[in-house]
Each structure stands twice: as C-alpha cells, then as structure tokens.
C-alpha cells in the first residue's frame, strides 16, 4: 500500500468522535444532547465548581443541626449515612487532581449532590416523624404514696404544649417503687391498671408492672391525654408511681 492510498483511506474514514464537541454528525437531537453534555462537563470541570458540592453538603449539615432535631439517633441513621457519603465524595472531589477523567469527577460531584439532597429529604422525614420525649411533661395528679386501701388511684396527664407536634401513639413506661426502700418490699406483689380516657379516642385499658411499657393509640389530633391509674398491691404496702418514660411516636 502506497502513502497516497493511506491518505485516501484516512480521508474516507469517519472522523474520530470528539466527546467535547461533535455537534454536526448525528442529527438535531444529538446536537442538543451534546450541547447539554458539554455545558455539564464544563461546569463539572470548572475550577470554581470544585468546592460547590462540599459547600452544599456542609450547608445542609449546619442547617440540620441548627434545627435541633428531636428523637433518637436511629431515626436519623439514613440521613447521617447520606451526609457522610455527601461529605466524603465532596472532599474527594476537592482533593482530586486536575488530570483525572471527566467521568470520575462528574460521578463524584453527582453522587455528592444527590446524597446531600437525599440526606436533607431523609432529615425532613425523620424530623416530621421523630419520637418526642415528653417524660418531663407528664403531670401526675393524686396523693402519693399509693396503697391497697383508700388511696389507690392517680391520674397522669399530658397537656396541649406536650402534644403540639401531632403523633399517632404514646409509649408509656411506669416506674413503681417501694415508698420506704428500707421496709419489706412489695414490688413483686404490685401491678397497675392504666386506662386511657382521652376524648375522641377509643378507651384503652392495660395491665402494667414496674418497668413495663404500654403503647396507646392517640388518634389524629389529640389536644390532651388523660390516663387513669389504679394500683393493686399487697396489704399495707405503700408505693410510689411515676412515668419513667413517655414518648410520642408514629407507628
């Protein structure tokens, strides 16, 4: 084969594909797609875009923390994982050398931004359905200690302020203790009947021991919660009752 043949062959062969700009060879749609692609690539590879995913992830984290989310850490696990992914990928994007491939840099930026958005959505969902600890807001009405004779009942209430964020259920744990720990113990002979008497909610009755937990359904919009407690204990026993834990939560 002569050099002329070689030149001819080169001229007749299709031109090599330029990934940055090949607007004219495959129709109108391809032209538009390639334009968008080129814009994205330029944005991704632009020096000022290096910090953008990291800034976005950090801003999300700062705002989330400033909102003081309530509830246990477990409810924000997905949010935390996504925030970690967003931060790590964004940090790698910042530290990566200029010579790295466009695809890799683009993937890092994309993953970081998507993880930030996903983390924020997970945070919003967690905050909207998070458990709310209202233990300190349970008001106990009645005279303590309770006994086996004339003073067997008390009422536990949760006011409007405790219920300002609506939740479907109330998880209540009772602590029952001997009034006089230096006297004979009555704890093993003591139980309580708790009865939810809140308007708009079906009455619910449960038997409890010290340390046991009940889960009351509260309905959609409950203004206040009222729980009647009646103690059953041994002869001449005197017991103290309190809410060890009260947590509003969604199913």
């Amino acid at each position: 084969m002569t050099a002329e043949d070689g030149d001819r062959q080169d001229r007749s062969a299709p031109p090599t594909r330029d990934i940055h700009n090949s607007p004219t060879t495959h129709g109108d749609h391809s032209i538009a797609a390639n334009d968008i692609k080129n814009v994205i690539i330029r944005w991704v590879m632009h020096p000022s875009a290096r910090w953008l995913p990291l800034l976005l992830a950090c801003a999300g984290l700062v705002i989330a923390q400033a909102l003081h989310p309530s509830g246990p850490f477990g409810q924000y696990l997905l949010c935390t994982v996504l925030a970690g992914v967003a931060l790590v990928t964004a940090a790698v994007r910042v530290l990566i050398r200029r010579s790295s491939g466009v695809g890799f840099v683009g993937a890092l930026s994309l993953v970081s931004v998507l993880a930030t958005v996903g983390g924020w959505l997970a945070f919003q969902h967690g905050a909207a359905h998070a458990d709310i600890d209202v233990t300190g807001q349970v008001v106990t009405a009645g005279t303590q200690p309770l006994d086996d004779a004339g003073n067997r009942s008390l009422v536990l209430t949760l006011g409007e302020s405790a219920l300002k964020e609506p939740r479907e259920r109330l998880r209540l744990t009772l602590a029952i203790d001997d009034h006089d720990p230096s006297g004979p113990t009555c704890l093993h002979r003591t139980s309580a009947t708790v009865y939810l008497v809140t308007s708009g909610v079906a009455a619910q009755e449960e038997q409890m021991h010290s340390g046991s937990t009940v889960d009351f359904a509260l309905g959609a919009r409950t203004g206040s919660v009222r729980i009647q407690l009646t103690l059953k204990t041994g002869r001449n026993c005197q017991m103290d009752v309190r809410a060890a834990s009260a947590v509003l939560h969604d199913s």
Partner: peptide
Amino acid sequence: YSITDERM
C-alpha cells in the same frame, strides 16, 4: 432476715 429493696 427480711428482704428489702435497700438490703438487696
């Protein structure tokens, strides 16, 4: 010897 919470 009586069992009490305190002694336990």
